[in-house]
Simulated assay, not measured.
Amino acid sequence: MARRRKQEPDGTNLPDDEVRDERDYSVRAVERVCLILNLLQESVDGITLNEVAQTTGLPKSSAFRYLWTLEHHRYVERDETNNLFRLGLGFVGMQSRHLEILRERARPSLEALRDEYGETANLGLLDGDHIIYIEIVESRRGVRLAASRGDRDPLHSTALGKAIAAHLPEDRVRTLLDRAGMPGRTSATITSVGDFMTELAGVRRNGYAIDNGENEADGRCVAAPLLGTHLPAAISVSGPSSRFSMQDAKKVAKTLIRVASGIATNPVSAQRSEAMA
């Protein structure tokens, strides 16, 4: 009686010397990628190249190639300031737990900002080469400036974009600008890379960014980065320029800086009064 040969899932017959009861379909390279991603997921602050090499048993040069490839596909993000690697935005979808936690932490503060100043408060994130709005608390006024959750805006013309870009490595900012371009949204939009870099230097110095009619001619927005979240995110307050003056924006900026620093540390159940304390 002829022996029945086992087959691969695609129907290909296995050679006799590979026939066995339980076939191992694992691929070593994939297993190493999974080890790296599991290590990143378990880390709050990020991991070093040495930690990746030790965990996977890879030489540092090979571990770096794995990380570089994952970074290229946005599954890993590298903090060039301290050479730490973290999970990248390739895993951060609109329904991910990472963003849900950030929304839960930010929402009371955004509501408090809206109630304090009467204008729309926003939470934005760098997604690719644009800013995406992941939480919005709209002004209660009839005339207001407000995007919708999931809307995308350019990096170079928004206060959120400036606040985030100011704390990215310069070469990464230049790459993002080169990829997305710097179209003039209004007559006030910064359309020169050199001018934009000068603007970012001022953002770092002041701690906040202002969009003065650069994204919408009749709009004004002020934003502060969320530096403690390990995500390229920022919060902002925006309103019609006829009502929300530059003096108003600078006044709000002081509060935004304080609130932004607290969002990363306040528990999800923080009360609105604590957010504005």
Rank of each mutant, 00 (worst) to 15 (best):
A2H: 12
Q7W: 02
E8C: 07
D10Y: 03
N13V: 13
D16T: 08
E18A: 08
V19R: 12
V19Q: 15
R20T: 11
D21Q: 10
D21V: 11
D21G: 13
D21N: 12
E22W: 09
R23N: 08
R23P: 09
D24R: 12
D24C: 14
Y25I: 07
V27T: 10
R28N: 09
R32G: 07
C34S: 11
I36Y: 08
L37M: 08
L37E: 13
N38L: 13
N38V: 06
N50L: 13
V52H: 06
T56A: 07
P59R: 14
K60M: 13
S61M: 11
S62W: 10
F64Q: 14
R65I: 02
T69E: 15
T69L: 15
H73S: 15
V76L: 05
T81P: 00
N82C: 09
N82F: 09
N83A: 11
L87Y: 08
L89N: 15
G90R: 04
M94S: 15
R103T: 06
E104A: 15
S109P: 04
A112W: 04
A112D: 06
R114K: 15
D115F: 00
D115W: 01
L125S: 10
D127F: 12
D127M: 13
I131K: 04
Y133W: 13
I134K: 04
E135F: 07
E138L: 07
V143N: 09
L145G: 05
L145D: 02
A147H: 12
S148H: 14
S148V: 08
D151R: 07
D153E: 12
D153M: 12
L155R: 02
L155C: 03
L160G: 02
L160C: 04
I164W: 01
A165C: 07
H167D: 01
L168N: 02
L177V: 00
P183H: 05
G184D: 06
S187Y: 12
T191E: 06
T191V: 08
S192E: 12
G194A: 15
D195G: 00
M197P: 01
M197S: 02
A201I: 03
G207Y: 00
I210N: 00
N212D: 11
N212C: 05
E214F: 00
E214C: 01
A217Y: 07
G219Y: 06
A223S: 11
A224S: 10
A224K: 05
P225D: 01
L226Y: 08
P232G: 05
P232K: 03
A233E: 03
I235H: 01
I235A: 03
S242L: 14
R243F: 10
S245F: 04
M246V: 10
M246D: 11
Q247H: 13
A249R: 00
V252L: 05
A253G: 05
L256W: 02
G262I: 00
I263Y: 03
T265D: 13
N266Y: 14
P267R: 06
R272T: 09
E274L: 08
E274K: 14
A277V: 10
